[in-house]
Design a protein around this nucleic acid. Sequence first.
DNA 1: CCTAGAAAATGACCACGGTCAATAATTAAA
DNA 2: TTTAATTATTGACCGTGGTCATTTTCTAGG
Lengths: 191, 191
Amino acid sequence: MPRAIQKRTLETRARLIAAAEEIIASSSFEAMRVEEVVLRAGTAKGTFFAHFKDKDALMDLIIGGRIDRYLDALEQQPAPRTAEDLAEALMPLAEFMTCERYVFDVILRYSGAAAVEDIGPIAATFGRLVEIQERWLDDAGFRSDIPTDLQAEGVQAFMLQAMATKFCALHNAQSIKERFVPYLRAWLEPN
Amino acid sequence: MPRAIQKRTLETRARLIAAAEEIIASSSFEAMRVEEVVLRAGTAKGTFFAHFKDKDALMDLIIGGRIDRYLDALEQQPAPRTAEDLAEALMPLAEFMTCERYVFDVILRYSGAAAVEDIGPIAATFGRLVEIQERWLDDAGFRSDIPTDLQAEGVQAFMLQAMATKFCALHNAQSIKERFVPYLRAWLEPN
DNA sequence: CCTAGAAAATGACCACGGTCAATAATTAAA
DNA sequence: TTTAATTATTGACCGTGGTCATTTTCTAGG
C-alpha cells in the first residue's frame, strides 16, 4: 500500500524549487547549477535527483510554469481578427520563449514528449496553446479550405520558425514579429 | 605572416574524424565519446580540442557532410510538380535528420548560426536547401501571391514540424510524410 | 512506547566534456 | 647547421551532471 507523501518531502521540494527560482531571478536560467541549488536549499546533491529526474526536469517544471501564466493571459483575451493581431497577441509569449538561447533550446527539446507517460509541463503548454488557437481560429474564420487544427499547427510551426531566427545571424536584424506576420498572412490569408 | 598548415596537422585531423566515423558506424552518433575518439586516433585529449572547438563542432562537421550528400542528390532531380512530389523528394533527407533524437537536436541547435562568422556546415546546408527549394518553387509555380523565398521558408518550417513529431507521442503513429503532405498542400495549394 | 519496515536524505564517487601550462615538433631565416 | 619563432601535442586537472549503497527519519501496528 502506498503511504501518503510526507510533509517533509513537500517542504524539501519547495525549497529546491525556490532556490532555483532565486538563482534564475538573480542571474539567468542558463546559470543555474545543481550544486548551487542544493547549497541554497540546504540539502545534499542526491536529494535533488530524488525529487527531479535530472536538471532539465526542474527546468521543464519552471519554464512550463512561466509559459502557463502567459497562456492564462491569452485565454482572457478575445480572439484576434487579423493575422497581425494574432502575431501581436503571441508576442509576449514568444519574447519569453526566446529570452535566452538556453531557454529556447529546452523548450524545443521538451515541446514534444517522446512517450505519453512523460508529457511534461512544457509539452502540456504546447497542447494548451494549440487549443487556444483552435478556438481563436474557429472564431476568426480565416480559412475554410483546411481544418482548424491544421491551421493551428501551422501557426505553431511559423511561430517556432520566427523565434528561431532571433538566434540566427542571417535574420536577427528583424524582430520576431516582423518575421512572424508575413508567415501568418501567407498562411491564414492566402490570395 | 601566416604559415602553411603542416601535413601532420591534416593527418591528425583526418585520424580524429575517421575515428569518430568508425564509432558512429559501429554504434550511433549519440554513442560518440571524445575519450573513445582520441583513443582510436592515438592522440591526447587536448589534441581533439585543438582541432575542434568542442564535441558538437565535430558533430556539426560530420552531420553537415552527410546532409550535403543528400543535397547533391536533390540537385540532380527535376523540380517536383506537386506538393506530394515535393514531400516525397525531401523524405530521404528528413529520414536521415531524424535517424536519432540526438542528431535531430544537434541539427536544430546548429541550423541557425548565432553570428555570421560561425556559420557552420549544418547552417550552410540549410542555406543550400532553401536555394534548391526556391529553384523548384520557381519552376513549379505553386503560389503567385507570395514571393518564392517565403514559400521556401515555409516548406522548411513545415518540414521541421513534421520531423519533430517523429519524437512526439501524440503524433508518431503517423509517418513523417503523412504529416508533411497535408501541411504542404495547405501551404502551396490553398483553396 | 517500542519496533519493523518504508520513505527520504546523504555524500563519496563516477562519467564525460573541456582547459591550460608545459613540452615537442616544425619551419624559416641567418 | 644552428637558432629563434611558430605551431602542434600532451596529459594532469577541473566543473558539473548524475548514481547508489548507506544512514537517517518517519510512520503504522502491537
